[in-house]
């Protein structure tokens, strides 16, 4: 399959990327690793007239320890997150989950910012960033703004990003609790998660349990009220309406959310 025709433009810097998306507006789509976008283009589910390639914007590929948070450039690849010593030390949940995405070939191309900006509820990293209370730093024509991850994901493939904006950095506060776990069920090893659960302390993020990545707020409330893990995990599907597909019905996804949340909380507890 060959994607439909488009005009390719390469941006050498974040500034150039912003001026290119300002020039082309709604007709343009940013491409980083392209491992979500190119498959959609092959299927004609996305047909941008202009692709602005930001894959070479090296200034947006970094992992830095700041005073109260870890700053990650939006174009940092899964491969780099997986093998980062800083993350292994400070945010092992993100390093581990990144190493479970797709396969090595995908992780050599795919970026954290690309995944978040794409806004696919079946992606692992958005739910991890949500569970870590991350903040998304966005540049646009009117300057820089910071968006809490809880307000970023609006619907299926819909985010708070405007067409002329560029996600530049993901800020993750150093977690108060060192306990973490990531539980993911896939059909085949390389598949997207049927359901996955990310736990950091008492924060619980859910993958593929609705139209956006979610926090399991009922579980978090129960844990805060002192509930035992099995009782708290039993509420993991509360308020969710995951889509049925060939891998799982809505009811099976809800079952998986409860089981994987229990396992994740137990695993996290063993690391505390």
């Amino acid at each position: 399959m060959i994607p439909p025709k488009f005009v390719y433009r390469r941006a050498g810097s974040a500034e150039e990327a912003l001026s290119l998306v300002a020039e082309y507006g709604d007709d343009a789509k940013l491409i980083a690793g392209g491992h979500s976008l190119l498959p959609l283009m092959k299927l004609r589910l996305a047909q941008p007239e202009v692709l602005v390639d930001i894959g070479r914007v090296r200034e947006l590929s970094y992992i830095r320890g700041e005073a109260d948070h870890i700053a990650i450039g939006a174009l940092t690849r899964y491969h780099d997150l997986e093998h980062s010593e800083l993350l292994a030390e400070e945010l092992p949940l993100l390093a581990h989950a990144s190493g479970r995405v797709g396969d090595p070939q995908v992780r050599h191309r795919g970026t954290i910012g690309g995944s978040i900006a794409h806004g696919d509820a079946a992606s692992d990293v958005p739910a991890v960033v949500l569970a870590l209370d991350g903040t998304l730093v966005v540049s646009g024509p009117s300057g820089v703004r910071e968006i809490p991850s809880g307000e970023f994901f609006h619907g299926p493939f819909e985010t708070a990003l405007e067409p002329e904006e560029l996600l530049t950095e993901i800020r993750l506060p150093r977690p108060a609790s060192s306990s973490w776990a990531f539980q993911k069920l896939t059909s085949r090893a390389i598949d997207w998660a049927v359901v996955a659960v990310a736990v950091q302390g008492r924060s619980v993020g859910l993958v593929n349990m609705g139209s956006t990545p979610l926090r399991a707020t009922a579980v978090e409330r129960a844990l805060a009220d002192g509930a035992a893990i099995p009782d708290a995990a039993a509420q993991a599907a509360e308020g969710t309406s995951p889509f049925p597909d060939r891998n799982a019905s809505t009811a099976y996804r809800q079952h998986l959310a409860r089981v994987l949340t229990r396992r994740a909380l137990e695993e996290a507890g063993s690391r505390a």
């Binding site: 399959m1 390719y8 190119l38 092959k42 390639d53 491969h79 070939q105 050599h108 390389i190």
Partner: peptide, 28 residues
């Protein structure tokens, strides 16, 4: 041709990638 099977794997700057999901333009 859907970045699943890996038969199109090549090395890009020494690292494996699936060449069905990379544009020639991207590796200029």
């Amino acid at each position: 041709d859907t970045s699943t099977c890996g038969s199109c794997t090549v090395l890009l700057n020494g690292e494996s990638v699936k060449s069905c999901t990379v544009l020639a333009a991207q590796v200029d």
